[in-house]
Amino acid sequence: MSTKYNNKIDEIRGLIATLLESIVSASQISLNSFIPISQDGYKLALEKLNNIELQGDTIDNEIIKTFALFGPEAIELRSLVAYLKMTNEIVRIGEGTRKYARRMRDHSQSECNLEPLSSTISQLHKSTIKALEYILECFKDLEQCNIEDYYRKIMVEESKNDDIFSILEKEIMTLIIEEKELSPEYVKVLGTLRKLERSCDRSVNIANLMMYAKKGGELSLYR
């Protein structure tokens, strides 16, 4: 393909990497705001994610323009389709991160005692961030990225994330039994933490799409 096409692909990758950086940064700020509780930290995390939908739309528009301008061949078309699907997953991770920061800010001001859960919540959050960081590393240097290696690392984090979330479910159920009057609030906390667990699942979806873009075949092979 032409130099203009390659430059356009680099531009799209850069836009995706920038979007991922904003989400990883906001998620890290939310984690740092959990212990000790920092309302200003949660506010900053939310501000970082104010325009993720607009950023996602910008990336999708650039991909569509590339379709129209260059009429890419099969292998390039596969990559563009994968990027288009990735953008959707990344924006939804960003939306989940934003909801998590907003809700955790509210939970920190409620009567719920999150201290017994703090260590497990931190582990869940760190695992989610790690999966996202692997994806970001790959996008920043796609030529040197060993996608199979990163795919395995992301799958390890997702498996770890599922195990930690199962532990959290049991811990929260114990609190619900012990503090029945606060059970509605603890149920909300569990729903908030599911945003982290779901973000890690979406990281696997992105890794699947990266494998598809690199190796081809059927998308179902990587699910």
Results as ranks from 00 to 15, higher is better:
3 T>G: 01
4 K>W: 09
8 K>M: 00
10 D>T: 11
16 I>P: 03
21 E>Y: 02
22 S>R: 11
35 I>P: 02
46 L>A: 14
51 N>A: 09
54 L>F: 11
58 T>S: 13
59 I>P: 03
59 I>L: 06
61 N>P: 02
65 K>S: 10
66 T>F: 01
79 S>I: 06
79 S>E: 14
84 L>H: 12
88 N>P: 01
88 N>A: 09
90 I>Y: 04
91 V>F: 09
100 Y>I: 08
112 C>L: 14
113 N>K: 08
122 S>A: 12
129 I>Y: 08
132 L>Y: 03
133 E>N: 09
135 I>P: 10
140 K>V: 04
140 K>R: 14
141 D>W: 01
141 D>P: 03
143 E>M: 07
143 E>C: 11
147 I>N: 07
148 E>T: 08
150 Y>C: 12
153 K>F: 03
153 K>S: 09
159 S>M: 14
162 D>A: 09
167 I>E: 05
167 I>L: 04
168 L>F: 00
172 I>T: 05
173 M>Q: 10
174 T>V: 07
177 I>L: 07
177 I>E: 10
183 S>C: 04
188 K>Y: 13
197 E>N: 03
197 E>L: 01
204 V>K: 13
206 I>L: 04
207 A>N: 02
210 M>A: 10
210 M>F: 13
218 E>V: 15
220 S>H: 14
220 S>L: 15
